[in-house]
Design a protein around this nucleic acid. Sequence first.
DNA 1: CTGAAAGCGCTAACAA
DNA 2: TTGTTAGCGCTTTCAG
Lengths: 349, 349
Amino acid sequence: MKQKATMADVARLAGVSPATAARVIHNNGYVSDENKERVLAAVQETGYRPNIQARSLRNSRSYTVGVVLSSAVQNPFFTNISHALRIAANRSGLSLLNFNHNYDARMERDGLQRFIEHNVEAVILCHALAPEHLKPVHAVGIPVVEIERTRVSEAARVKIDPRPGMQAALKDLVAKGHRRIAFLAGMAGITNRPGSTPLDSDHDRRNAFLEVAQACGLDAASLIVSEGPYDTPSVEDPLEGLTRGRALLTAAERPTAVIAGSDLLAAGLLQAALELGLRVPEDLSVIGYDDSIARFLAPALSSIRQPFEAIGEAAIELALSPITAGQGPQSRSLATTYVPRQSVGPVPG
Amino acid sequence: MKQKATMADVARLAGVSPATAARVIHNNGYVSDENKERVLAAVQETGYRPNIQARSLRNSRSYTVGVVLSSAVQNPFFTNISHALRIAANRSGLSLLNFNHNYDARMERDGLQRFIEHNVEAVILCHALAPEHLKPVHAVGIPVVEIERTRVSEAARVKIDPRPGMQAALKDLVAKGHRRIAFLAGMAGITNRPGSTPLDSDHDRRNAFLEVAQACGLDAASLIVSEGPYDTPSVEDPLEGLTRGRALLTAAERPTAVIAGSDLLAAGLLQAALELGLRVPEDLSVIGYDDSIARFLAPALSSIRQPFEAIGEAAIELALSPITAGQGPQSRSLATTYVPRQSVGPVPG
DNA sequence: CTGAAAGCGCTAACAA
DNA sequence: TTGTTAGCGCTTTCAG
């Protein structure tokens, strides 16, 4: 168990003062070429790595951002968000601290406390369970970035516009002759738990569907909307999309195409279709939303894609951009796209 | 933007010395009831939260563990691992720093460097790309825990025994009359990149299949093994399970049941079956491995389940258990189980 | 029971 | 161009 070399070790070995070593290491200030050499050599020899804690303490920066998601196990969408954030953070030399509240208020509160203790430079979240939990975060001046949802008042926002993707998706369906189209809407949170009111973003998706559909010349009467949560309270439960899919597909006026509010809902819908002997896309066309597990499903699912990479970059950028006084929090808006795969076909019959 | 209160602030407000405040906050040492009250009140009033950086610097502990995975976007298995680790870590008051190397050697090297800088108390990893990248980690005495794979020599291990789950799965198939059974083996890494040699754990799964099958009285000649990677170099590529599934299912002697080396491979196989007009489970029985996305597929996939919760707990426990001198690294072994769902049926015909 | 003081490793202002 | 020094916030002897 060798000890980690400190800057003092490096300085000693190079026969210079710690200050000079620091200057070389940060490559600022004047240092003679000779000393520079010696310090660099000493760094090599000792395998010196800076101690971030010490640096943080001194600079009051932690080089760390906290990320709050609900649960990627319940909804694969969060896997993609998490991945995108990580890549963007890395690029800015930041490390990410994560936790999942998994719809448990205590988890959220405690996790945020932990973030404060770690002096994260910002908190990024996707779906604040209880916005009041962010009060201590605000109190110590940590900026908050909210992705997609709008629950926390004092937060920079990464907004996602469902319309471009929705438009392309509906255009595809209409071109293939579909007229009776359903939207399997989701809402964040779980019905029997707190925090399950439909959020702006969920309404947004639904409204986007209705508005774009009408703009495409579809009759409002031929549009069907099913509402409910995205995921289930327990991993033991049948998928929400299966339960609601059964209802949707056995109704008197069965839609010929369904757009789901998430790939997860679409996955359940595919199960319902299979159970009912409906072939996709021959008997029923299905389009997902998010483009998370779309490519893993059978058939590979056409989906309205979230711009994950751009979301990650925007979130990190907002996290680091100082709150310009009086300016109020910033906001970025990003567009969805449509990724056609194998789950959309011509209208049957 | 209020500033975070420090312990000195608390002490001043309570009219005591920082040392006394510390004693109250850590609830150790003798403090008069009166002073205790006053300090506690001051903590409340200021909303004091300890500064972990400062504490770390002083205690040389970081309360942080680093986790290296490949990519949960490519393989959903890692989502479950990541989730389990997070829960276990939380319980021990640890925070997790994550990164995904995504089969990029530079990412792995740089990420581990970052972990060293953060003074993580341990590094947990699932699939070391280049074991030599861990040398600096060893050099500074950070313990390493390896989950499932065995690539790093000096590491504590969480081993997973595929046999119990495999046994139950094969028993189910045999009871339903299956005799010609294939195993769609995976190997970590990607064929056209470094680090793609089949690993012990992958061999382990395949060998478990062969051994258990023969113990079940199956004729070796009726067993088929297909080998290849788990995932594809790019998210654009068709799933590996689809490509290999096509070959497997169009061969002269088509198996009546397939066990896949991962749910991801099984997902591709379901796509192949659909494409070829084979119904699951009527024409073909399919069993996955991991139990990651199994419940999202259509039909819901029977799967050999990894004991995720136990893996998370064991990994964190090993991460924190000091390396008993001379003892060599510890190891824990955990058993898989079998989760039957809807993708297994009686042998056709 | 309480306080003073040193120091973890690093940085930046200031002096030389 | 280089070194000295003080101090970030916390903990922990050691005196009192």
